Computed example of a mutant assay.
Amino acid sequence: MNQPLAYIHPEAKIAQNVVVEPFSTIHKNVEIGEGTWIGPNVTINEGARIGKNCKIFPGAVIASVPQDLKFAGEVTTAIIGDNTVIREYVTVSRGTIDKMKTVVGGNCLIMAYAHIAHDCMVGNNCIIGNAVQMAGHVEVGDYAIVSAMSAIHQFVKIGSHAFISGGCLVLKDVPPYVKAAREPLSYAGINSVGLRRRGFVSEQINEIQQIYRFLFMSGLNNSQALDKIELDLMPSTERDEITNFIRNSGRGIIKGYFSKDAN
């Protein structure tokens, strides 16, 4: 690897077959895995841990100092999983003392101008759309899709396989397997198209649909709906994931379109 027009700190740990294009800067305490491509004008700051076969496009900034006034210079990281694509001008902050790391999983696509703030945890196989703005401490489950121009409040949790429509303001937790849209953000059905693409069979999809009928279309409050779900439906991976997510929600979940109050 010979890039005379890029700055690579001598203490950076970079695999032999990594490509670093001109005018990029890679600081110390950085690790980059095999097969990764670093485009031109990329900045990789201290604390970056970038996996194998990633692609990082021009203007991206990885492991920037957190935009958190409580940050006191603690040694933290920003972790990017294998096979993830980071498009133009994406910014990923490193963690703070809360989690000590920010994580973007493997096989993700982070589209141009998105921001992933300190202590966020983004799962595997996620798509984060153009200009999505993700505040600190957000958690995003595997296979979730957040469409362009959405803004996500700090500490919000987005469940696995969820789909959030473009331009949404996400102030509450979004449970697994659902579509969320409208203003204020509300339940808009289950993500049946995405589930079928990922191999869910009709029985699983029908069960998920029934669970959310209890939660959002029955007139029951969340506690009553959870009791009804656990009484009427046999235990399953999907049932238990949904009920555990709702019971452990810190900010409360989004409202149902047909319900007056989701709480």
Rank of each mutant, 00 (worst) to 15 (best):
M1F: 13
M1H: 14
N2E: 11
L5W: 13
I8S: 03
K13P: 00
E21M: 15
S24D: 03
I26G: 05
K28T: 05
K28G: 14
G33S: 01
G33N: 00
I38Y: 01
I38S: 01
A48N: 05
R49T: 06
C54G: 11
F57W: 09
P58S: 13
V65Q: 10
Q67H: 11
K70V: 00
F71Q: 11
F71I: 09
G73T: 13
E74V: 03
E74C: 02
T77P: 00
G81Q: 02
D82P: 01
N83F: 04
T84R: 04
T84S: 12
V85T: 12
R87Q: 14
V90T: 03
T91Y: 07
R94S: 06
G95Y: 08
T96M: 03
I97N: 09
D98L: 06
D98K: 15
K99G: 00
K99F: 14
V104R: 14
V104S: 12
G106H: 09
Y113D: 10
A114R: 05
A114I: 06
A117R: 09
D119F: 02
C120S: 08
V122G: 02
G123Y: 08
G129C: 15
A131T: 13
Q133I: 15
M134V: 13
M134Q: 08
A135I: 02
G136S: 10
H137T: 08
E139I: 09
V140D: 03
D142N: 15
Y143K: 05
I145C: 08
A148K: 05
I152A: 08
Q154M: 01
K157C: 03
K157G: 01
I158L: 10
I158Q: 04
S160L: 00
A162D: 03
A162F: 10
A162I: 05
F163A: 02
I164R: 04
I164A: 03
S165L: 04
V170D: 00
V174L: 05
P176L: 04
K179C: 14
K179I: 15
A181E: 14
R182G: 14
G189F: 11
V193I: 15
G194H: 02
G194M: 01
L195P: 09
L195E: 10
L195V: 09
L195C: 11
R196K: 13
R198G: 02
R198H: 07
V201A: 10
S202I: 10
E203Y: 02
E203L: 05
Q204L: 08
Q204W: 09
N206G: 03
N206S: 13
Q209H: 11
I211H: 10
R213E: 09
L215H: 05
N222R: 15
L226H: 10
D227Y: 08
I229Y: 06
L231P: 00
D232N: 13
D232R: 12
L233Y: 13
L233T: 06
L233K: 09
P235A: 15
S236D: 02
T237G: 00
R239I: 14
I242L: 11
T243G: 06
N248G: 01
R251I: 12
G252R: 04
G252K: 08
Y257F: 12
S259A: 06
K260G: 14
D261P: 06
D261S: 13
A262M: 08
